[in-house]
Amino acid sequence: MSIALSRRRLIGTLGAGLLVSGCDSWSRSGRVQALLGSAEDLTMGTQRLITGEATLGREFGPAEMSPVFRMNGNRTADTPEYRRMLANGFADFRLVVDGLVRRPLAIPLDRLRELPSRSQITRHDCVEGWSAIGQWRGTSLALLLDAAGVLDQARYIVFHCADSFGSTPYYESVDMVDARHPQTILAWEMNGRPLPEGHGAPLRARIERQLGYKHAKFVMRVEAVASLDRIYGGRGGYWEDVGVYAWYAGI
């Protein structure tokens, strides 16, 4: 019995050691990452199958809001251009809507605030595991896409942002299902006040059925594209390009 037990322990130790070192070298292999990443398609396909296109994420009451809404990602966009816009209250900021559209737009922030808006108290889920509940008000992205006349061949909406990590600009993208979702807004108000710098002023995308890194901050430009291949690293977002984060962040 003791021989069997010690043999078991030996096998167990060897097995665990092999597993760990195996998983590490496999983790670095592009082929293994692609294989493991194939589950993302299965996850997205399954989730889309059981979720109505317009099904809303849960909305909460004011009493359920987080006392402190944690800031994450870049707290500012550290460029002279952004500092100047911030200093004059984004008076000369123009949100650009272009790409595969009939009528490219350049909309001042004041004009955006005058358009019909939507307010929602939702839970923000970070990929790290924490959550915070806050209130957001902003302009429906679908409204802007319709105003610009998105062409049929457009399949994705890309958010170009003013912030960057080092010299790599932040960006994100969603497909048309999430772009046209009723809760997808470009928020200019948070918790009843103008969107603060740390949370992405002047505009932050709210993609309520996906994780926080999809909610691009400091949005300057919205571009309709047919493919993500030629946008920056080609994987559809900053974290998708530099890490191996999933483009579909519904889980």
Binding site: L19, V20, S21, C23, D24, S27, Q33, L35, L36, G37, S38, A39, E40, L42, T43, V127, E128, W239, G243, V244, Y245, A246, I251
Partner: peptide
């Protein structure tokens, strides 16, 4: 898994084997 810190890779392994 992996034995170094990578949230993205941890998630890749986790969701594949969750299926």
């Amino acid at each position: 898994i992996p034995g170094y810190y990578s949230l993205a890779l941890g998630r890749l392994w986790h969701f594949f084997f969750a299926w």
